[in-house]
Every structure is written in structure tokens, then in C-alpha cells.
Design a binder for these strands. Structure first.
Lengths: 108, 108
DNA sequence: GCTGTACTTAACCAAGAGGTTAGGTAACCA
DNA sequence: TGGTTACCTAACCTCTTGGTTAAGTACAGC
């Protein structure tokens, strides 16, 4: 799977996005990250694995803890990708596009 | 499923992203959209359904054609979401963050 | 060395995703 | 009317996802 697909797939789960949001406040242990969720430990472990595979977090090793840290690098790619569609966000631009298409068709 | 999750899930497939890219050049029929892919018609239909459910495309009805049109509105939410992580993209900022955390800890 | 805590692995399960083929429906065209 | 084109639905298959419980590993502290 390509990087961008992996990133989008990782971000498609609200639990994982919440974990990323938490990590913006600084590194955290698995236990700390799992606290807000009504979910078993292994479930959180799996989410963290997905995030790690997507390169969105890095994991350390300190005694019995495995601290997680945010790595937002892949999100830059996401932002850049989305930016390419900026001109299509605004409905008025969309209408203008339609108008231009119509005009083109009438030319032929 | 919430809007943002649906959008990210829809974008996690390269075929669907390619379809969106094609639609930036203007509306297209299902046949036209399926041409670049070595994939059956129903497979494309399913991808279009996912994109439609995520609000990324709208579909018309003209004789035997079902023209698709880009609706990039949900991508604005994606861009805004990603923007919130901008300050974490740059490694030097990450280091600065670590430094600040350390300084805070030493204060206490 | 024993006990508790943090975390992972393994095995399992239900549901969903992404593809297929076969068979519809609807519109155009001769 | 009959054929062709565009597209969808239905049924099916396989692999993945997101969750579970049970059991295992690694470390800290008494």
C-alpha cells in the first residue's frame, strides 16, 4: 500500500484521530492513551500498530512502558493533496467551472 | 459513521483518488471514468457509490448516462483538520516541543 | 523470588471492503 | 421490434478490520 493510502486509512478511524490529538500535547504511554476509551488494551495496541505502520507515531522503550510520540510528517502529504482541491471547495467556483464548460461546448 | 471518517475512508483507495483527480477536469460518465482501470464495471460502480455516500461526488441522469461531478466540499474539512497539525510537521518544531516539555518538567 | 503493572501476542469472531460473474433495466438507434 | 450501449443489482468469494478473551513477556518494588 502506498504512503498516502496508508495515511488516509489510518485517519479513517475516530479512535485513532483522537489518539493523535492527544499526542499533540506530548508523548504518552499506552495506558494513558487507552484511558479515554471503553476498549480493551489489545484493541488500543492494534490502533497504535496501524498508526505506527502509517508513520504517524514513533514508539520508545522505557522500562515497562512503550511511550508513543506523534510524527506528523505524513500529514503534510495529506494537506498538500487536499490543497490541490482548494479551488473546487467554493460552490461559486464550481458554478464558474460549469459555465466555462458550457461556453466551451457552445464554441464547438 | 461521521463525515470526516467517511471522507478519509473514501480517500484511502488510490482508484477513488484517481477518479476524483479525473473529475477535476470536468464531469464524466461512468464509462469514461472506468477506462483507465483494469476493473469490471460493477467495481467502478461500487467506488462511485462510496464517493457519493461520502459527499465527494454528485450524480446526474442524462438518457442512459449517469454523469459524475466532483463535489470537493468535504475536502475542506480534511484540509482544515490537517492544518491543525502543521506545527508538528517540521522536525525542528518537534525538537523545540520536546525542549519545552523538558523545561516545563524541570520547573516543577 | 513473588506479586503487580504495562504491554504484546495469539486465536478467535462478526462485519465490511473490494473484487468477480451473471443477469437485470433503461435508453438510443436501425 | 430487435440489437446495442450504459449502467445497476444480486449473489458470491476472499481478505481485512476492529473488536474480544486468554495467555505470555518484561520490568519494578517489596
Amino acid at each position: 500500500m502506498d504512503q498516502l493510502s496508508a495515511t488516509f486509512a489510518a485517519l479513517a478511524d475516530p479512535t485513532r484521530r483522537a489518539i493523535l490529538a492527544r499526542l499533540t500535547e506530548g508523548p504518552a504511554t499506552v495506558k494513558e492513551l487507552s484511558e479515554p476509551f471503553d476498549m480493551s488494551g489489545p484493541a488500543i495496541s492494534k490502533h497504535l500498530r496501524v498508526l505506527e505502520k502509517a508513520g504517524l507515531i514513533t514508539r520508545g522503550r522505557e522500562a515497562q512502558w512503550r511511550p508513543c510520540q506523534l510524527d506528523a510528517t505524513p500529514l503534510k502529504e495529506v494537506a498538500v493533496w487536499a490543497e490541490n482541491y482548494r479551488r473546487f471547495w467554493d460552490a461559486s467556483y464550481a458554478r464558474l467551472d460549469e459555465l466555462l464548460t458550457e461556453m466551451k461546448e457552445n464554441e464547438q
